[in-house]
Design a protein around this nucleic acid. Structure first.
Lengths: 350, 350
DNA sequence: TTGATAAATGTAACCGTTTACATTTTTTTT
DNA sequence: AAAAAAAATGTAAACGGTTACATTTATCAA
């Protein structure tokens, strides 16, 4: 029942009557150790059930081999694909991951950052919470020269490397598409404009309107959080508009899905009465009815790029100084929810 | 640009002209240190930007303060709620989390287990992959007396603690409900019967049929994985059945949603022609149309219970020997997708 | 065979904590 | 004021690796 003593390099060394230095080198596959001794050591280590003590190693090496990740929410299709992308790259490179999430709270994000800082992650990948006010909590990383890469929700003024899509263009494309479908009163449902993703999509929305000679009407802008109740609220606001809007560009698929459901419950036809375009290309898009047009935002690519950039930096390959902004390709996916104009649809589909 | 040297207890000690032992004790808030010295030490530590070196501490303490988690999939509503539950409890107790996922592959699960074992997690929480053949890869934990708790997908014969719901009863309830709605040819779409969750739900399905005098028809059993393509295949199989089934108990909400879509695309009405009950109570349930009846499987509770049990065990409170199986409450949620019988629906709703 | 060179192995300091045990300082008792 | 007891602090040895530098052993040319 009692915990068996752990095997150390000392045990292996004394069993084979060699020095710990040789054992240590052999286990790291140092070419300086002869093949014969290496084999003996490997075999015995295996037989004795040796496992490296990462604490001893990290203590000596002064690095943790760990990368911290702060995301604003776990329960999101997009975020889990980003994490998958990060994980793929980091495990391949032999790094551990500590994943923290802020639940969209500034306070929690600060706590997460502090925690990861004290855990001494070698690098950090983060996406800001909705109500993050400033980036002071990342300063300590900067001071200790721990690289930080932001993705999705970022602050672009700083000198941090950021991985994003062209939110501006995406917003423009979504809106332009709705206009081409004949929409003239297009609602824009989004979240805090303090966050780059939303402000840029908003800019794209306004630019598309302007380019089509449609005046921007601020009563058509609805800002809310990303919860189900907020989504229902937003849909209710749309329903109260007079005249009714004929299109909606909603910057989150889940919110779009809930809105659509609420509108339908109130006998509004989609896309007949109101055409809808969402954002992210989550799995729900093709499960709801009508299928949701959206902007494809490939999380896995974002994660992979962010992680491999960070790791390259840690390894000293390439410097982050000259790559400040990395833009991942995104694109509009047209489905039934925005197709008022069948002839247009035919053109696109064939 | 160069990395500033880290502050250690030596630096604090020599700055205050006291011994490192006192500093170490003070920082752990040991009552043996006088209030005066403690204050001096805390203040200076803060001012110098001291942060504990967890490696040195763990090396000395011979524990990692880390809990490993192996899940079969990250991209799942249920799993992310379990993780949220685990995280809540573990961070409160000051433990770190390493999350690994097997992507339903036995090979990867073995690799994950080996990795976490080498990282020396203090405890492990795991759910088996679909094609896990045996539990040999967990033996090393047993040998070193590292506690392992399984949840959801478990192997009940062993002497491990497991956290589950009453899958048997849930399967029975789902099927019974369909029968009460008038269904007589009920398809059961599920996954590998090697996994307890599916075999037990299957047993519940059969028992409910038997109790209602409906003979079990093995052509109505469809076994598949949980992918979108598999779900479409399953729906196609249903469509080819002659006569058509009039109900379906599907052990996964996502699969159920895809099946429902496929059926509808083929002009089958739900619940009119085929009533459907899913499993898990994912967010999609109320977004698709008709809303999906399902078994509510509260992941967050599962995670919290598993984690707090593990931690209690690690702290020596309560022994895992006498608590082998923990059953979390689950319940049937009736929505439109299974309501053929309006009067019954009214009864339930009022 | 010898000396030079290369290859393999060994020695010992170090990474930053914790803690049993020893010592010093302060407080209390008589 | 001295002795005894309690409180505070200090000393030094772990914990298990890594690696600069030193030493030994093997290889090869002359």
């Amino acid at each position: 029942m009692s915990k068996k003593k752990e095997v150390t390099i000392y045990d292996i060394a004394s069993a084979l009557n060699i020095s710990i230095a040789t054992v240590s080198r052999a286990l790291k596959n140092d070419p300086v150790v002869s093949k014969r001794t290496k084999k003996k050591i490997f075999d015995l280590a295996e037989k004795m059930g040796y496992r490296t003590n990462h604490f001893a190693r990290n203590l000596r090496n002064q690095k943790t081999n760990t990368i911290g990740v702060i995301v604003h929410e776990l329960n999101s299709n997009f975020i889990t694909s980003v994490l998958a992308g990060i994980e793929k790259v980091t495990t391949e490179a032999g790094y551990d991951l500590i994943i923290a999430h802020s639940s969209e709270s500034f306070i929690k994000e600060i706590a997460n950052a502090k925690n990861l800082f004290h855990k001494r992650v070698d690098g950090l990948i983060a996406s800001l919470s909705l109500d993050t006010k400033n980036l002071d909590h990342f300063k300590s990383f900067e001071e200790k020269n721990v690289p930080v890469i932001f993705f999705d929700r970022v602050e672009q003024e700083g000198k941090n490397t950021v991985v994003v899509i062209d939110n501006d263009k995406s917003g423009y494309q979504a809106t332009q598409h709705l206009i081409q479908q004949g929409c003239r009163r297009i609602v824009h449902i989004t979240s805090s404009l303090k966050r780059n993703v939303y402000s840029k999509r908003f800019k794209g929305y306004k630019d598309a309107l302007a380019d089509n000679g449609i005046p921007y009407d601020e009563t058509l802008l609805i800002i809310n959080d990303l919860s189900e109740s907020a989504a229902i609220e937003s849909a209710m606001k749309m329903l109260k508009m007079d005249p009714l809007p004929d299109g909606a560009f909603i910057t989150n698929d889940f919110v779009a899905a809930v809105c659509m459901r609420t509108l339908k419950e109130n006998n509004i036809r989609v896309p007949g009465d109101i055409a809808i375009v969402g954002f992210n290309n989550d799995a729900i898009c093709t499960l709801i009815e009508p299928a949701l047009s959206t902007i494809n935002y490939p999380g896995i690519d974002v994660g992979e790029v962010a992680a491999s950039n960070l790791i390259n930096h840690l390894k000293g390959v390439g410097n982050m100084q000259n790559t400040n902004t990395i833009i991942i390709r995104s694109n509009l996916i047209i489905r039934k929810s925005s197709l008022k104009n069948e002839s247009y649809s035919d053109k696109r589909k064939n």
